[in-house]
Design a protein around this nucleic acid. Structure first.
Lengths: 194, 194
DNA sequence: GTCTATACCAAGATAGAC
DNA sequence: GTCTATCTTGGTATAGAC
């Protein structure tokens, strides 16, 4: 069985994906995790902020690993991108359009009011962009282009979540994925043309 | 002087851009608008939800008009896109990185819990995508491509807001804007090649 | 490490005088 | 159309027994 600390983390993650940071109460968290208030403050003495930072960090790392996994499995960079957006679209459909990612929502909610959480979201996005940049560089794409491509990819993914969730339809995510493939193809062409 | 109803709308818009939907209280709204609670419920009998829907709708329309304005002023579609992302980046810098757009945050916060607000955000995004699609079609880009391009543009813009706000730096927005220009150029090439 | 009770405060909304 | 007082609920956090 999962330990109390892990149950608190996964319950919070799921609630954040449904209601965001400000929309999630610690009562909901303890109820969903079947843990008493005392345990929450035992594991996270800093209260809601410390719990939130832990969720951001751990789930940020999980998504980065997922990206590496999909990239490893794909035949080439363009397919990796399509596969990743397709996977996100499928998750969305299978979970009744719950947000696939709690971090983007939190980032916008707290950026102006909570400096430590804002930095936490920034670190996660940077880690994703760095991971994607390395992949593209490994394919021979020059650093600047690789960075631009990686940044655009992450932005398009987060923006795709916004549109898909508003529409309750995964189609925007697949559409955006297609554009991202075009962009990767374009970058790869200049490499192979050499 | 601005009427009470308008003061309530603009105050709410600004508070949403700082703290999101759930992070904004009606007390903050009435304080910022210098209006008593009674007036708020006089103009918006449906309370917070009705006020929020009004903010979403009116500011969504404002942004659409701004897009048309910039598109009209630009020399060509590619420049229109760069200009638009550049304008957003400048706003971000000049407002201490307050969110340029309240709608994206709200969309993710309420999509799972408030159906009428979810639909409100969806209508706004659809109106933006439709507006951009028409522009691209007017340039000779085929409907399907135009729609894909428009969807990607809106997603990239919203995603750019996420990254820029997390980073407290407008750079991601400009970077994403450059990629969007590449995408538009790519689409235009197939047109002029005919 | 767990659990219950509770302190304290802010939320959204309503009532009714003016 | 404005204003103040107030109702009710639910938020975060703490205390202290077990």
């Amino acid at each position: 069985m999962m330990g109390t600390r892990d149950r608190l983390l996964t319950a919070t993650n799921e609630l954040f994906r449904r209601h965001g940071y400000n929309g999630t109460s610690l009562k909901q968290v303890t109820a969903a995790a079947a843990a008493p208030t005392g345990s929450l403050y035992h594991f996270f003495p800093g209260g809601k902020d410390e719990l939130t930072l832990a969720v951001i960090t751990t789930s940020g790392e999980t998504y980065r690993q997922l990206f590496e996994l999909i990239a490893d499995a794909a035949a080439d960079p363009a397919n990796a991108v399509t596969d990743f957006f397709e996977a996100a679209a499928t998750v969305l459909e299978e979970t009744d359009y719950i947000d696939p990612c709690p971090i983007g929502t939190i980032a916008r909610e707290v950026a102006s009011t909570n400096e430590s959480l804002r930095q936490g979201t920034d670190r996660v996005f940077t880690s994703w962009i760095d991971a994607a940049t390395s992949r593209f560089e490994g394919q021979g794409i020059p650093r600047d282009t690789a960075q631009q491509l990686a940044t655009t990819l992450v932005a398009a993914l987060e923006g795709g979540f916004v549109l898909a969730r508003a529409k309750r339809d995964a189609e925007p995510l697949r559409t955006v994925g297609r554009s991202m493939r075009d962009l990767v193809d374009q970058a790869m062409e200049t490499v192979t043309a050499k």
